[in-house]
Write a protein that binds this DNA or RNA. Structure first.
Lengths: 249, 249
DNA sequence: CTAAAATGCCGTAAATTAAACACTAAGAAC
DNA sequence: GTTCTTAGTGTTTAATTTACGGCATTTTAG
């Protein structure tokens, strides 16, 4: 090292928890590591941040290099910087999550990746991931759970046209809860954020459902007037009762 | 620079938005910079992270070196890493906010600080701060607003024994809203998170108010059973009506 | 052609929660 | 003892949330 002090011996990276939704399941895109350290384990896509690159830019780059997708929802979540988190040196990492429509997804040829796969989020959380990526995944999943309640970001995971049942299943997957069909539909429709495009599902072996589109302009307009999106996970009545008793004591 | 590649030409720092509450006002602790760059401007307390130091540890260190306080509420908020945010090189910074009881506070002798002061948060946000600290302050204030609604962290800003009116004023300051006295008291007391210690204010020129303590154990116990703390900023009825009409269209 | 299977779609009553609102009580200062 | 200041308290009304069952539409199999 030359005259510079050793504050400049460190590096930073971004890691990206890329969520997708398919067939009622919430998934995360992982890469099987082809080289040490942690060879053979699943890891989050990530990369060192270039010297002249903003953090968000780096996160978008990682995403695009991997999936070819450009305009996706991306949000910074947390920075992980334990001294020993990276075996090869001091590398802190800024974690992002992004939401992509699996239907848009095309895997890019990627030199550093041996193997890329959509894994069910629950399964991924249970398996051993490289580095501190279990912790990162968990943190980002919690952030998603939280975000999805207060912002209409769930739509980022669905194709442009979707049915109310698909939307409900998405929420159920993210919130790990069951929702009442009638109440869910009532609530979502009452927000008037969905455009009824007068189209119906095709090729389904049952009564086809209406298709809707998320009306982003409408949302922004309402938001500007103080509207706040909110979906709650239904606290079941039994639970509420038990809690009320506990509090009463 | 020697053989190391230039990913390792960068550094990272922590910056700490230290909130306090005094006399009905929410304050933030700032340092007047004694040296270039940004000499003479107010700045958030912060420092480079040592090579062998975890991020949280660095944030606690900054806080303790400045205030002497050890056990305080501290939370990571966001990482700021624009290429041009620091004039002297690539320095990304991890922003934290912390909540301290001003009554506990004793200013430490601090070599690098010319001048340390509690500034009203609104005033601080309006003035020009060093670096990107306006942005950081704003982000952390928003994070506090948000956090205070869903976690009982406000108590960290109050002395151990406080009156309900003080608590209400705290919430009003953080949420920038007015709350109905009776409804607020009803709601807070119904959570049974406060211990009535049968003590009263002294030395006030009016009827003394009861003092309460926050019961942390109780909170943790309830939380474990699914209790969720929640304070809403009252959506005034007029606003709600206007919004409802907008949605109906 | 009919029946069965699958999912879509609808509305109301009851319970809970939130909002609005005004007077009496206690102590200190004069 | 009068005045001043803040503390403390309950009820009614409106809004929101929850619970809940049955008929409708389409495809497929027989």
């Amino acid at each position: 090292m030359n005259g510079e002090n050793n504050f400049f011996k460190s590096a930073f990276s971004v890691d990206n928890v890329i969520f997708g939704f398919d067939d009622g399941d919430l998934k995360v895109l992982l890469i099987k590591r082809g080289a040490a350290p942690f060879q053979g384990l699943w890891a989050l896509p990530g990369d060192l941040v270039y010297p002249n690159e903003d953090l968000d830019t780096a996160a978008y780059r990682v995403l695009e290099e991997l999936t070819g997708l450009k305009k996706v929802y991306l949000e910074q979540v947390h920075t992980f910087g334990s001294v020993e988190r990276h075996p090869l040196g001091r590398v802190i990492t800024i974690a992002y999550f992004s939401l992509v429509k699996i239907s848009d997804f095309t895997l890019m040829a990627s030199s550093f990746a041996q193997n890329v796969e959509w894994l069910n989020v629950d399964d991924a959380m249970k398996s051993e991931l490289a580095f501190d990526h279990n912790k990162i995944l968990e943190t980002c999943f919690n952030a998603l759970m939280h975000r999805v309640r207060i912002r209409p970001v769930g739509f980022e995971l669905l194709p442009p046209k979707f049915t109310l049942t698909e939307l409900q299943h998405l929420y159920e997957a993210i919130l790990s809860t069951e929702l009442d069909k009638r109440n869910f539909r009532k609530k979502i429709l009452s927000m008037s954020l969905l455009t009824d495009i007068e189209e119906y599902q095709e090729g389904v072996p049952h009564r086809p459902a209406k298709l809707y589109q998320f009306n982003k302009e409408r949302y922004q307009q309402l938001e500007a007037h103080g509207f706040s999106f909110e979906v709650k996970e239904s606290k079941k009545k039994e639970k509420k009762k038990r809690l009320a008793e506990l509090i009463a004591r």
